[in-house]
């Protein structure tokens, strides 16, 4: 299992590197410190985070309640790594979760996850 995860991350890494190689010049690795609006856009995009399908949070216009309301994130998740882990693969924390494994299943890339976490910390 851990081996598999490492492999997935490794592959993910290779993909990212490849994409970086192929893509344009500068790839921003640490989104930390991006404007929350960038993360909000990714989070609300239905083809990306689609977080509003399940969560209610500031700025949402639908009353979803599959997951808990997202608020007060700094106080509840002081460790950034915890939020990254939830977005990477919530199934590791809760094997029966319905929340998609955004990172592990390549729904969001590294940078998008970092951007979303920046946005979450503005909630």
């Amino acid at each position: 299992m851990t081996k598999a995860v490492t492999r997935a991350i490794f592959h993910g890494g290779i993909a990212a590197v490849l994409l970086a190689l192929l893509g344009t010049a500068s790839v921003q690795v640490f989104a930390q410190g991006t404007a929350p609006s960038a993360g909000q856009a990714v989070a609300f995009d239905r083809t990306k985070g689609n977080c509003l399908a399940c969560h209610t949070m500031r700025g949402s216009d639908v009353p979803s309640n599959v997951g808990p309301e997202l608020n007060d994130m700094k106080a509840r998740f002081p460790d950034r790594a915890d939020l990254i882990a939830i977005l990477q693969n919530e199934e590791a924390r809760n094997p029966q979760t319905i929340m998609p494994s955004f990172g592990r299943n390549l729904i969001l890339d590294h940078q998008e996850i970092e951007q979303i976490v920046d946005f979450l910390y503005s909630l």
Binding site: L52, A53, C54, V62, P63, S64, N65, V66, Q96, I98
Partner: peptide, 14 residues
């Protein structure tokens, strides 16, 4: 089952 057992009765968007 994720949606129709675990989250049955809950709101997924509309």
């Amino acid at each position: 089952a994720s949606c129709h057992v675990g989250a049955a009765g809950q709101r997924l968007r509309g």
